[in-house]
Design a protein around this nucleic acid. Structure first.
Lengths: 238, 238
DNA sequence: CGCCTATTTGAACCGGGTCAAGCATTGTGG
DNA sequence: CCACAATGCTTGACCCGGTTCAAATAGGCG
């Protein structure tokens, strides 16, 4: 995990909450107090239970956000990519991270310390507002996930997970989803076991709904897959 | 659902985000644009999928926040009491409620319209900040619930639910939990079925860990119950 | 009192988690 | 560059927890 400096000014992640909120030159000067981290695939940069050290943003790369449960069983809560935010609430009462985060590929992170962030929020109301919208949005997603886990069958959960990563990470020119997850990771996201994920994917393959070679998956019939879980998604698009 | 006017000035809910954020006289004047609603037990005051009409606060009473799933199966996401907030993100991009909310007893609500709220947030940075903290906190809770639902057994989920309502709503002088939930509602919160809730409660009764008469429950051995689910709750207290 | 709903208990069934074994793929060191 | 270990993927078989169905009982309310 070595360091290098990326400038918000020249950053291409226009959806980044910080970038979006920097208006005055003073704002931009403040933003330079951030620290950049290079993080290799598989590396854990947030550990549940350790003291909060500010907010992270993905400058480039992908990561998973998870909670570790009983007997080390992981529950993946979110998947994040360029421009997105990690590190729930590094200020206020909570002093410890409630989640862990691990890089899914070699990534570059931006880290704003608690102090810098508080300073920035005081000076930049728009940033506080953007953060609020971010958390509200995440809350919506999380609550949808609660329902999903409680009510869907395994097949539906796996389909939901595959459609989600398809939507979130997009596809390359061959139609393959732009992220490589292990079967275990898909299981950890879906809230089931590796074997069930494999069985479901096998079925979907033999039904012609998707194609996959190793970890590379492409969805053939998005419509029908969506249809299978449509009863669960009346009002939300995740 | 008839109307009457409660003043923030004289309100006793000191934890209310609005109340906490009102500093200047102008702030207080703004807060008078809210509307009060009287709501009977069982009445639904937010319906999933309908246009957002601002943020609600419980002035007095209790309510459940839920999502309706396939075949009408409910998933209760939160339980709220005096001073607490309902109505996720009535501003920004989302135009429809992603949740429903129903009064659990006769309640008085405060409702701030989208316009009033936006005006207030612009004028009162502390309010935006408080809202952000609120959503961040809720996100933590929700993500813990995701793990809970995905990893706990039915018995553990029911215990978790009972300990939660015990903690949240407290007990009266006889040690009985200050809220009356149907078995169905406990099931909807725990993410299981009525029968399982009943079976679990029966077991816990015969093990002497709790006592109950009808919907009135009191917990006898909180320590042992906590102990049963301790492996799942290393870092969070909900 | 009688209807309706909520609660409780028993029994049957089944989805999905667990275990085990074989195969494929990747990686590492000689 | 190959051999072999380690890890990940896949499939089949089994079994258990939990949902579903049914029926009986208790409780609430006009």
């Amino acid at each position: 995990m070595y360091r290098s400096q990326v400038q918000c000014d020249t950053c291409s992640n226009n959806l980044c909450l910080i970038k979006k909120s920097l208006i005055s030159d003073e704002d931009k000067r403040l933003s330079q107090q951030k620290v950049n981290l290079n993080c290799k695939k598989g590396q854990q940069f947030i550990m549940e239970g350790t003291p909060v050290s500010g907010l992270f943003f993905i400058y480039k790369g992908k990561a998973k956000v998870l909670k570790t449960g009983i007997y080390g069983k992981e529950q993946i809560l979110r998947l994040v990519k360029n421009g997105e935010t990690i590190g729930h609430r590094g200020f206020g009462t909570k002093k410890k991270y409630g989640i862990s985060s691990v890089a899914l590929e070699d990534s570059i992170l931006c880290n704003f310390s608690n102090e810098t962030l508080e300073l920035m929020m005081k000076k930049i109301p728009k940033l506080t507002y953007e953060l609020m919208l971010f958390y509200a949005d995440e809350l919506n997603r999380s609550e949808t996930k609660v329902k999903t886990l409680a009510q869907m069958t395994v097949r539906e959960k796996v389909i939901d997970a595959l459609l989600f990563i398809h939507r979130k990470f997009g596809t390359n020119h061959k139609g393959c989803i732009n992220i490589q997850l292990s079967r275990q990771e898909i299981a950890d996201y879906s809230g089931t076991t590796v074997e069930q994920v494999i069985r479901t994917i096998s079925s979907l393959k033999s039904e012609g709904l998707l194609t996959c070679v190793g970890k590379t998956i492409s969805i053939n019939n998005q419509g029908q897959l969506k249809n299978e879980i449509s009863e669960h998604n009346f009002y939300l698009d995740q």
